[in-house]
């Protein structure tokens, strides 16, 4: 059963990869990357149960947190174009 879940996750990974490859807009690709991170979390969880080491679940949680932070960084960057402070009107005074 875990093997079937694994196969489904791998297929979804391939689909996300196809979207990242084809995606016409920037946001298709960001979404594909985010989805790929989520699928990585799921894959790690399923690997943990498949190989009977459920303590991999902690790692999966860490991956989820890191994926979230990385995605916030990428989105913020794609909006502002830099990581410095985002209020240029304050500097003008």
């Amino acid at each position: 059963m875990f093997a079937i879940a694994m196969a489904a996750i791998l297929v979804t990974m391939a689909l996300a990869l196809a979207r990242a490859r084809l995606g016409p807009t920037v946001f298709d690709r960001i979404l594909a990357l985010n989805m790929f991170g989520t699928k990585t979390v799921l894959l790690i969880a399923v690997i943990g149960f498949l190989t009977e080491r459920p303590d991999f679940l902690d790692l999966a949680l860490l991956y989820a947190l890191m994926n979230f932070i990385g995605m916030v960084a990428v989105l913020r960057f794609s909006k502002y174009g830099h990581f410095a402070d985002t209020e240029p009107e304050k500097k003008a005074e």
């Binding site: 996300a16 990242a20 990585t40």
Partner: peptide, 30 residues
């Protein structure tokens, strides 16, 4: 798009390293 795909590449590499029983390396990779 290439930058996004390098992110995907890293996630895949991390999964593979985790299966190879190297969770610390996998986490660094991710």
């Amino acid at each position: 798009a290439a930058v996004m795909l390098t992110g995907i590449f890293s996630f895949l590499g991390a999964c593979w390293m985790l299966i190879l029983d190297a969770p610390d390396v996998a986490f660094t990779e991710a």
